[in-house]
Simulated assay, not measured.
Amino acid sequence: MKTILWATLTANGNYAQSGPENPPKKEALADFAAHAKAAGNFIVGRRTFESMAGNGGGGGPFADLDIVVISKSAPEIPGVIVVGSPEEALNYLQQKGHQTAFISGGADIHNAFLGQGLVDEVIFNVAPVLEGKGLNLVIDKDQYRYKQVELLDCKPLGGGVVQLRYAINL
C-alpha cells in the first residue's frame, strides 16, 4: 500500500499551526479534501480530528471516507475507527482494500509515521506565513540523519500557497 503524508508548512519551514489568528488557507483545505477523496480515506490524530469535527470534519464532504483516528486514550468515536498505532491504521485500511493511505495530521502522527519509515510520499503545502515558534517534522528524534527525497511535482495552488510533492527514497 502506498502511504502519502500531507502537511501544511510555513514559509520558514515550521509545521503550520492553525488557529483563530492563523486559519488554514482555503486552497490548502480544498487540496486536502481532493486528496482524501482520491484515496478514499485519511489517517489523523485525535486532537486534529476533534478540531476538524468541530468544523464538520467527521461528516459533510468526508462522510463516505474511511477515517482512522490514532489515539492511545480515546474511546470509540462514532463514524470513525480508532486505533492505537500507525501500523494498526495501515493494516485496517489495507484490510478494507485501499491502495493508498492518506496521512493528514497532526505533527505527532506525522512524526510517528516518518520516524518508523512508513511514508512513501510527502505533499507539503507551503503557506505564505512566517511563524515565530513552531513544530518540526522529524524522521528521527534521537539522531541527526538525512533521508533522500525526489521532487515529483511543484505547483501553485493559489492564495500564495505552493505545493511540493516528494517521493521518499528508501
Rank of each mutant, 00 (worst) to 15 (best):
residue 154 C to D: 04
residue 116 Q to E: 12
residue 114 L to G: 14
residue 83 V to N: 10
residue 135 L to I: 15
residue 160 G to R: 02
residue 84 G to W: 08
residue 89 A to M: 14
residue 44 V to R: 03
residue 110 H to G: 00
residue 148 Q to Y: 15
residue 145 R to M: 10
residue 107 A to R: 07
residue 155 K to L: 06
residue 89 A to L: 09
residue 30 A to P: 00
residue 60 G to F: 04
residue 48 T to W: 01
residue 26 K to G: 01
residue 55 N to P: 02
residue 61 P to D: 08
residue 136 N to V: 06
residue 143 Q to K: 12
residue 112 A to W: 14
residue 5 L to C: 11
residue 101 A to L: 02
residue 67 I to Y: 07
residue 5 L to G: 10
residue 133 K to H: 13
residue 140 D to M: 03
residue 24 P to A: 03
residue 31 D to Q: 13
residue 7 A to Q: 09
residue 107 A to M: 07
residue 112 A to T: 12
residue 107 A to C: 11
residue 24 P to S: 04
residue 93 L to F: 08
residue 157 L to Y: 06
residue 160 G to A: 10
residue 135 L to W: 05
residue 27 E to D: 10
residue 85 S to V: 07
residue 50 E to A: 01
residue 126 V to I: 15
residue 22 N to K: 12
residue 151 L to I: 10
residue 163 Q to T: 09
residue 53 A to G: 07
residue 90 L to N: 11
residue 38 A to D: 02
residue 30 A to F: 01
residue 122 V to L: 08
residue 20 P to G: 00
residue 74 A to T: 00
residue 2 K to T: 07
residue 7 A to K: 09
residue 30 A to E: 03
residue 152 L to F: 03
residue 29 L to G: 04
residue 8 T to F: 06
residue 73 S to I: 00
residue 122 V to R: 08
residue 62 F to Q: 07
residue 163 Q to V: 03
residue 59 G to H: 07
residue 44 V to Y: 02
